[in-house]
Every structure is written in structure tokens, then in C-alpha cells.
Design a protein around this nucleic acid. Sequence first.
DNA 1: AAAGGATATA
Length: 640
Amino acid sequence: MNSTICNPTTLPSHPSSLFPQITLCKTIKDLKQVHAHLIKTSQIHDPLAAAEVLRFSALSNHRDIEYACKVFDQMRQPNCFSWNTIIRALAESNDDDKPLGALLLFFQMVCDATVEPNQFTFPSVLKACAQTARLIEGKQVHGLVVKYGLDSDEFVVSNLVRMYVMCGVMKDAHVLFLRNLIEFDKGDEVVRNNKRKEEGNVVLWNVMVDGYVRLGEFGAARDLFDRMPQRSVVSWNAMISGYAQHGFFKEAIEMFHEMQMGDVYPNYVTLVSVLPAISRFGALELGKWVHLYAEKNGIEIDDVLGSALVDMYSKCGSIEKALQVFERLPRKNAITWSAIIGGLAMHGRANDALDYFSSMERAGVTPSDVTYIGVLSACSHAGLVDEGRSFFSHMVKVVGLEPRIEHYGCMVDLLGRAGHLEEAEELILNMPIKPDDVIWKALLGACKMRGNIEMGKRVAEVLMDMVPRDSGSYVALSNMYASSRNWEAVAEVRLMMKEMDIRKDPGCSWIELDGEIHEFLVDDDSHCRAKEIHSMWEEIANQLRLIGYKPDTSQVLLNLDEEEKESALHYHSEKIAVAFGLISTSPHTPLQIVKNLRICEDCHSSMKLISKIYKRKIIVRDRKRFHHFEHGSCSCKDYW
DNA sequence: AAAGGATATA
């Protein structure tokens, strides 16, 4: 036992505590020793001593909530402070059943009637209601708030509003919000709130903005955001994370830039929120800037921010940087591991992905279902059929994870593209979940790759039935017919599309230069340097012809004559992007392109040759994976 | 002697 902790006489008195031994505890073990000492010397009956033991075990960095509950249970007559402490600890716990425990304890406190809840009790209780989405209990608590006359305390009010938000009743939240705005305007508020009145209660506004953002009601959220008297970093974070989570990646990045024009500075949460949007665009320069910003501003790169950075670097093409960040992280959780495994898979480094999976298991981190998506997609990209099968059954039988539709998708892709088309179809027909269009599309892609028109036709029909307005199945079917030069069938599909007014999803590619994203569509001539881009492509095409390359026109959708087909191919968006990249960067600079669809056969072959002719590394991220083109070959080994 | 808003992975 450490005597400096347990012998109070050897310690300098601590100004903020009558029980300095407790304040000096560094671990929960220290605390338990002091606790034992207090019990032995009967000092534990001093309510202050007991309260401090409780506070340490319930709310300190070294908290042990189970222990705190025991301490609380042993109190003969807990005072209001102790009730508040234990309720707050339970309400803030991430454990599922703990917030409910906080609620139960609160109702016990009210029934107990030896103490009265105060303004410090309600924020925690309301937080527990919010976390468990218990509207009925929340309303009862609201009633008690009024009964105890605490309905104008701003801490209580913002938590009341948040409770309604989290229970999904935005209307009630809004009514309460408006009423409190008026009350603040009338100025009939306690002195403590006067300062807030001038600034406007930022927190209350933030809660409302967050509420609308959660519902995806960006009009309402934006309206409040623009009108709020003051914006804190949290206001910006709410908008940025909201946009990012609802798939409005462009808006998230715009907000991120906009916030920096003002006097608000990005913090940890800002970075974690904006990184997925950056990943989505493959905006490596911006991603690097975020990483550097964190390092320069002392923002801790923990497992959460680290995972977002690992994901960003891998999705922005820099798998080496992703590995570097990963290795440096002091702590790695299941998400961190999933990010690096998925990243390696995306870059076609299947063996590394599987090695990292083994390391993860050795490190004692339990793989999640997401981890297995990474593992299975690694197998799929490398054609590791047996390994994939065995990981899948291991996941189900040994780990006991329920396979999600994504896992079946990986398996269908893996089996189908490896040529086991019947087995893939069997799997779809026998899986316990209803197959969606993504699954069928995986099989359709495999049919196309394997040239199985018969099955392909069948699958396409299923898809046309399932998602009638979707162009994908028509395009795939048409491409399949085109590959076998069945132009009549191609024309038929084309006619069907025309009759139903179904258009091919426009292909779109983008490339980042000096932190700016340049976007190109098929046959795009809207760029300000379109003329130069066009003549650059002419030059590229000549070079390609010189080394004997013949464009592969089999996959062009329309039944045009050969020359027209060739020119349609020329202007696939990734080709425009690569031409633009070549004229806009100095020799040998690697080019990095992101494309919204899968790369086509012809673009793939062209990119290989361009990488050789112009001595450039070209990295293309398509809808599903990365292609690293260098010295005339691709990292996917033409299997994708 | 104590109190409010947000965050990630296929």
C-alpha cells in the first residue's frame, strides 16, 4: 500500500477538498484503498467523505460505475449531491441499460422525499430520457421541472428541448424553443442568465439546429443557423456532420471552408465530421491539410480521429500514408482495424489485408461485421475463393455474426467473378434475407465478365422488375449483347430505354489540383480549358494509335458506326480528367482521378498505356476499388 | 461540493 496516499498527516492539505487522499488518487485501486481506510476509521460516515468517494468512482477519469453504484447503495441517507452524482454518472454512460437505471433512480429519489431534485438533477435525468428516447417519462419529468419551478433555468431548458428532439417530436421542441426565446426577451430571468440574454443562448439554438439536421430537414436547420444571434464551433459542427451523414458531402466541405472565414476554429469534432466528406471526393490535398491542422494545433489523434484519417488516406489513394497513420496510433479499436483492412482491400492488397486481420485477432480486438466486409472484399478482389468461403463460414459459425446483405454481396461477387455463377445464384436464392438490387447487380456483373448471356438475361429481367427506373440493368444487358456483337438485341434494349425514357447514369470523374476539385462529365466541354484538354486528348489518341492500340468499342452502348463509337469512347470522363491532369501538372507528377461508376474496359487499357507513354503513375478510384497504373500495367492485374 | 450542445468504420 502506498503510504503517501493513506496517511493524511504526511500530505499537504488540498485547498479544494477536505479529503485530500481522494483528490490525489491516480487509479480506482488507490481509491479503493482510501475507501477502506475511511471505513476502518469510521470517517466514511461523514457525508462529505462518502460523497467524495462517490464522485471519484462515478465521474472521474478513472471512473468505475459498478463500484460507484455500490458506494451509493451503502449510503444510509444520500444527500441531494450524491443522488445527482450517481444519476449523472448513469445517464452519461454508454452502456444501454445504465441510462434507464438513471431514470429509475430519479423516480426513486422523487418518491423517497427526503431530498428534493434541483437544477443540477434535471439535466442528467433529461439526458437519460433523450438517450433512451422515452417520451412518456420525459413528459413526466417535464411536469416535475415545472412543479419545482425550474422551467426557466437555461441548462434545464436546453436539455428539455434536446429530450423532445431525441424523442422525435420536433414540434414540441420548437414550441418550447420559441417560448424560451420570448422569455429571454422579456428579461424576466435570473441574474445568471442576463449575460446569456445579450449573446443569445447559443446552446439552445444549437440543440434546435442539430434536431433539424438529424431529421435531414436542412432548409429548417439552415434557416435557424443563419438567424442565430451567435454561432459557436458546435453550431458549425452540427451542420458539417449533418451534411456529411446525409450524403451532402459537397455542402459539408463548403461549410468547413466557410467556417474558417470567421473567427471560429475547427476542433476535434469538426475534423472527425468533415473527413468522411473529404474521403468521398478523394480530395487528398484537403485531407492532408486536415491532418496537418490536427498536428499543428495539438488536436489529439486518438483512435476515433485516427480511424477517420486512415479511411481518408486510403480512399484518397494514399494507402502508404494510411498505414503510417495506423501504425502510429497508440490505440486501435475495431473501427480502426476495419478501416485499414477495408483500405488494403480497396487497393487490391488482399494478402496484406488478411495479414492485418490476423494481427487484429492477435491484438485481441473482436472483429465486427464491418471488418468481415473488408476481409471478404479483399478475397473478392484477389479471386481468393476458398479463403472467402472459409472466412464467411467462420464468421457465421464461430464468431456468431449474422451475415448482412453486404456479406452476401461480397460472396456473390467473389463466387460469380471467379466463374462459379451457379453457386452464386444458388446463394442468392437461398439466403435468409430478401435479395436487393445490389446483390443481383453483382451477379449481373459476373455474368457479363464471364460472358454468360443466358443467365445475364434472366438476372437483368429480375432487376428490371425490381428497379424499373434504374438504367443499370439495361446498360449491362446492352453491353452484354454488344460484347457478342448482337447488334439487333442491343438496338432492342435501346428502344426499350427510349420508350421508357430511361437514360444512362452520366459518368463523372474528378481530379484535385491545388486543393480545387475539377469535375468532368462524359463529353464534357464546359471546362475553361476545354480546348487545350481536347487537343491533349488528340495527342494521346495519336500516341496510343502509334503503339498499335485499337480502341475496344464493344462496350459502347449505342449501335453507332465504328468511327462514332471510337469518338464516344474518347470522351469518357476519366479520359478528359487524365488529359486535363497531364496538361496541368509537371512531368512525373502522379495523377489521381476519382470516378463515380466502374471504369470501363477501354479506359482501363488506355490508362495502362498512358501510364507507360507519359511515364506517370495514374491512380483511379472507381465505384468499387483503386487501380494503380504504372509502367503499362495495373495493380488489379486486370481482375476487377 | 456539482450543471448544458456534437464525433467515426464498409
